[in-house]
Computed example of a mutant assay.
Amino acid sequence: MLKGLLVDYAGVLTDPDAGRLYEYLHDLRTAGTRTALVSNAPGAPAGVKTELSHYFDALVFSGEVGMAKPNRGIYLVAAERLGVAAPSCAFVDDAERNVRGAVAAGMVGVHHRSVADTLDELAVLFS
């Protein structure tokens, strides 16, 4: 059973229909699943981090941890911050190479193509 969900920001949470993903993240987190944002951004201003903390238990920015996707290490850092083993996590990204990096780290990979497809896949994985 999966216990952690890691999500990319740009391309996933910036999708025009991303409000549905944010709702899903909120509901999943409320139900006890640990959530993390994993981004290749250098970091984020405090205000943005505060806003994102409503949806995520951990925020992992490549500029702050010194490694970037698809390096398997960034996914392992996120899983460790969640207190969840990598094989108990799923990772969502719109870039296939980043999904492959998460799979190489032992996670379930979800290639985001649309909000509807991603939500359908996550519903199966987290049911």
Rank of each mutant, 00 (worst) to 15 (best):
D15E: 08
P16D: 13
D17T: 07
A18G: 07
A18K: 14
G19H: 13
G19S: 13
L21I: 15
Y22M: 14
E23I: 02
E23K: 13
Y24T: 11
Y24V: 05
L25P: 00
L25W: 03
L25T: 00
D27V: 00
L28H: 00
R29A: 00
T30Y: 04
A31C: 00
A31K: 05
G32A: 03
G32T: 00
R34P: 04
R34L: 07
L37A: 08
L37F: 11
S39M: 08
S39E: 08
P42W: 10
G43K: 05
G43M: 05
G43C: 01
A44V: 07
G47F: 00
G47T: 04
V48W: 04
K49H: 02
K49F: 01
T50S: 13
E51Q: 12
E51A: 15
E51V: 04
L52R: 12
S53T: 10
H54R: 15
F56Q: 01
F56M: 03
F56L: 02
D57C: 04
L59Q: 10
V60H: 06
V60F: 07
G63S: 04
G63Y: 00
G63F: 05
E64V: 12
E64F: 06
V65A: 04
G66S: 12
G66Q: 10
G66I: 06
A68Q: 13
A68M: 13
K69S: 09
P70E: 08
P70H: 10
N71C: 09
Y75P: 04
Y75V: 01
L76R: 15
L76W: 06
V77G: 02
V77Y: 00
A79M: 02
R81Q: 14
R81I: 05
R81V: 03
R81T: 06
R81N: 10
L82A: 03
L82P: 05
G83V: 07
V84I: 14
P87G: 06
S88R: 14
C89G: 11
C89Y: 09
A90S: 12
A90L: 04
A90P: 07
V92G: 01
D93G: 06
A95F: 11
R97A: 12
R97P: 00
R97Y: 10
R97Q: 14
N98D: 13
V99Q: 07
V99R: 09
R100T: 14
A102Y: 06
A104Q: 14
A104S: 15
G106A: 07
G106S: 09
M107N: 00
M107K: 05
M107R: 07
M107G: 01
G109C: 01
G109R: 02
V110C: 12
H111V: 13
H111S: 06
H111C: 11
H112C: 08
H112R: 09
R113K: 14
S114D: 08
S114L: 08
A116L: 11
A116E: 15
D117T: 13
D117I: 08
T118I: 08
T118K: 12
L119M: 11
D120L: 13
D120W: 06
E121M: 05
E121K: 13
E121H: 12
L122I: 07
L122A: 09
L122V: 10
A123Q: 11
V124H: 15
V124W: 11
L125I: 11
L125V: 06
L125W: 10
